[in-house]
Simulated assay, not measured.
Amino acid sequence: MLNKLCLLMFFALGVTFMVKAQIVKEFTVEEKSGFDLVQLNFTSYKGVSQVNKMYSSKAVMIHSHLSKVNILPDFEYNIENRVLHANLNHNNVENESFGKNLSSKLFATSEGDFDHTWEVGLSDSYIYDLNFHFGIGKATVDLSNLKVKRCKIKTATADVALNYMGKSSNPIEMDTMMVKVNMGTVEGVNVAHANADYLIFDVNYGKINLDFDEVSQRKKPCNISTTVGAGSVYIKLPSPQYPYLVKIKSTAMCRTSLPNYLFDMGEKVYASKGYEENASDLITFEIDVSVGSLILK
């Protein structure tokens, strides 16, 4: 009887191990010449993702741990007109319902609850045009010291953390940085270091927390658009000595808190102490909150 019980326990442990077992996959671009721009399109329906600089001469290296071996990503790349097009697509062949995705998002307690993990490595030797689509989960994007011409991030219910470490700004001028989330949180640290003409943050339901404390390296105008349908916006503004405008669009269902050093120009437009109409490095904040709260510090 004891032997049977031991065998049963061993079998149960074996099944559990098989269920939790993961497959490790790596995808790399081997070409190192013949292109001036790397256009990366990355799509994953679920997972915890990290994007950052790697110390390698490869243009793209993607490392993944997948919990279900029957759902393998498609990866391909080619060079056309001196642009390297790299595409990774991880489709959800199980067609999980939105309710199931939503519940796993709301009650997840660890990275393992999102089934898959992704590490996307980029090199400082190339110029990038980045397009990310994260379905459900979490994504941390650190573009410090990377040459990024354009970056667009879209998610269903994935939280996004966009970070620039210290004074590690974009070495080249960026056209547009866009983060669009259906439901979730967008966190941004030192996002002015993206060196972008346009910064766009759009959340239907959730939170936006942005830090613009360090803007001393900026030498050109920048337009920052922040939109929340229902939720909250918290923005740490630059020092009042820098020239910037704050334009607010809100309803009676939005609670607003502003620093007292902003000068009220009327019609929900506010200016910093260093504001000059024709300043070459003018930053314009356009903030739209329908329902929730807006806090500027």
Score class of each variant (00 low, 15 high):
M183A: 11
Y198P: 03
V189S: 04
V191F: 03
K154I: 12
H193E: 09
V179R: 01
C151I: 12
V186H: 01
I153R: 04
E187Y: 14
V189D: 10
V141I: 15
R150P: 03
K138F: 15
R150L: 07
H133W: 14
F201D: 05
N163Y: 08
A161H: 13
C151S: 12
E173G: 02
S168C: 07
T157Y: 03
V148T: 07
N182C: 12
K152M: 14
L146C: 01
G166H: 08
N145L: 08
D142T: 02
S144N: 06
I153S: 07
L199W: 02
A192L: 00
A158H: 09
A158K: 12
T176R: 14
G188C: 06
S168N: 11
A194Y: 10
K154H: 14
V179C: 12
L199I: 13
T176N: 13
M178D: 15
H133I: 14
I172M: 05
V148F: 03
G137S: 09
K152N: 15
N170M: 00
T155L: 11
G166Y: 10
M165V: 15
K152V: 15
A194Q: 04
M183Y: 01
G166K: 13
G135Q: 13
G188V: 02
V181S: 09
V191M: 04
V141K: 06
G188Q: 00
T140H: 12
E173T: 12
V141G: 05
T155H: 05
L199G: 06
A139N: 03
L143C: 00
F201L: 04
A161V: 10
A139L: 08
N145T: 03
V186P: 05
N182V: 12
M183H: 04
A192P: 01
M178K: 15
T155E: 03
Y198H: 14
D175G: 00
I208V: 14
N182I: 13
R150Q: 13
L199Y: 10
N145R: 07
K207L: 11
V181N: 09
K149S: 13
T176G: 08
F201A: 01
D202S: 12
S169K: 11
A139S: 14
T185A: 04
R150S: 12
R150F: 10
K167Y: 10
S169N: 12
G184H: 02
D202N: 14
M165S: 11
I136N: 15
G206N: 06
T155R: 02
V203K: 08
A158L: 10
M174W: 04
V148Y: 02
I200R: 13
